[in-house]
């Protein structure tokens, strides 16, 4: 039953995602891509629950590695996006 609920959530957020992006000016394509990329680092949340189980098995180590990799994506993604957008502001005035 839970899978059905989760599928509902999936469907609704796909629609929201489609609706969010329209008429984006061309200069914002790259920052938008980078910002969305940072959000896809949300895997870190799933990795956290695996890395903190306290059982020192393979799943635990894989989770810890996933935390590190996803954190690169999150931290790097947001910082790079912010740098790009800061550049826009200076150019604009």
């Amino acid at each position: 039953m839970e899978a059905v609920f989760l599928t509902f959530i999936l469907m609704l957020s796909i629609f929201v995602g489609f609706e969010l992006i329209n008429k984006v000016p061309a200069t914002l394509h790259t920052p938008l891509m980078s910002g969305a990329n940072a959000i896809s680092g949300i895997t870190v949340v799933g990795a956290i629950s695996l890395a903190g189980t306290g059982q020192h098995d393979l799943a635990n180590w894989l989770g810890a590695a996933a935390v590190a990799l996803a954190t690169i994506n999150v931290v790097g993604g947001y910082l790079v996006t912010d740098r790009m957008l800061a550049m826009f502001k200076k150019k604009g005035g």
Binding site: I39, S40, T43
Partner: peptide, 17 residues
């Protein structure tokens, strides 16, 4: 849940972009 929501948001908006 949050993985599903955020992931599909990025998936859908990424395709459109």
């Amino acid at each position: 849940n949050i993985l599903i929501v955020a992931g599909s948001l990025v998936g859908a908006s990424g395709i459109i972009l």
